[in-house]
Design a binder for these strands. Structure first.
Lengths: 226, 226
DNA sequence: GGCGTCCTCCTACTCGGGTAGGAGGCGGCG
DNA sequence: CGCCGCCTCCTACCCGAGTAGGAGGACGCC
């Protein structure tokens, strides 16, 4: 019996890469691809895959919500999450959503193949680098705060965060969003508090390390004055 | 006559993606792959490709030096550089190294195919987003300074830059390197001047966008106080 | 209606970051 | 030797960033 795989990733290049990688395996078959979360949910229902390779960041619906919806249908599908960085905060949320494993996109191919087989067999696994962080997280969590977790940023705060991550000053952010810079400051204070960061520099680091905002790569340009 | 392509990229997934993409084209054939710069140089000599798809950031030897070496052999190969971001400062260096074109990795596939054919035909091209920056750069360059280009950072400045890129404050950098924070400030002023940046936030953005310091990913941890 | 959330804007303050300019020590190189 | 580049450190100054705390309007929900 072959392992039926659904590949859900918004980058066609990555999908093609997986398809090629898995094509060489006797016991694995790619039965469908999805380029966003909604499509993933739909195709999971239609093709009944054994394993869904799920990117976290996708348009329409992200990998987390897609994971929840697929599992909510009672399907037997196992979800294997693909993350780009081991720092990805979503990992903890995905754990709660019921994912069976996490693999880093730049892990060696053999590791990925192994992961698919393990997950298909009903076991769970984490990439070593992720495991380290998860453990650290849980040991830290069990002491001071109750359950906690990361607070959610509002829409507007995300707008501001996006611009911070591109190196904008408060004044520039204000111009871009048509709000005063005191308002910008207010948003930033909230962002830093919610994410437990010291200043905007750390916010930029976090944004890149977790791969936030990779969607708007097209518009990504640092401001340069003439 | 088919266009012979060498794919040089350190991510196997990306290579596989290109192979798959190009497999569908009648006039294009992937004759070899390379996972680092040295391999690219060697295989370019061995397989005599029409076009080399070259990633900039690669182990052993980066895409720029590989480009220089391949062109130095007098081969007819055209180099098409792949960049992840339009902000990549290396672009200017690669121009000087003799690359024939630049394509963003997330440009639509048709654009990439077109680019390969154009470059194979002997013309040069830039991705629109890159063109914009190059023009801005050259117009700026032709006025005050002679040829110039990016000044090189010293070893110590790189040390400081690395820590800036991890979100460290000046005081923290000073402790880490055993120097006073006024010295740190001095270095930072020089870094910003040399790279034409406004503040450390832009420096962090630049570091990530150009993939500087990806080597020390293992040690990459944001400072978090207990 | 009343409550809560979000967004907006304000003042006033503190502090870290960045600039300007100078200075001394060290090592390499012509 | 003398010059230069690099690293180190300093003072003095300015300004942007972030904090604290308050306030008002829009909207949705019970």
């Amino acid at each position: 019996m072959t392992i039926r795989v659904l590949v859900a990733d918004d980058q066609s290049m990555v999908r093609a890469g997986f398809r090629m990688l898995l094509a060489g395996e006797e016991d694995i078959e790619v039965v469908a691809e999805a380029s966003n979360g909604l499509e993933a949910v739909e195709k999971a229902a239609r093709f009944d895959p054994t394993v869904v390779l799920m990117d976290i960041r996708m348009p329409e619906l992200d990998g987390l919500e897609a994971t929840r919806r697929i599992l909510a249908t009672g399907d037997a599908a196992r979800i294997l999450i693909l993350t780009t960085f081991d720092l990805d905060e979503y990992v903890y949320e995905a754990l709660r959503a019921g994912a069976s494993g996490f693999v880093l996109k730049d892990d060696p191919p053999e590791q990925l193949l192994g992961a698919i087989r393990i997950v298909a067999g009903g076991d769970a696994l984490l990439s070593p680098a992720i495991t380290k962080r998860v453990i650290k997280r849980f040991t830290r969590m069990s002491q001071p705060e109750p359950p906690s977790g990361l607070e959610e940023l509002t829409e507007r705060e995300l707008d501001v965060f996006r611009l911070i991550a591109r190196g904008f000053s408060n004044a520039e952010i204000g111009q871009e969003l048509y709000i005063s810079d005191t308002t910008v400051k207010t948003h930033i204070t909230h962002i830093l508090q919610k994410l437990d960061l010291r200043d905007r520099v750390q916010a930029v680091v976090l944004a890149y390390e977790t791969g936030l905002f990779e969607e708007d790569a097209g518009a990504r340009t640092m401001r340069v004055e003439p």
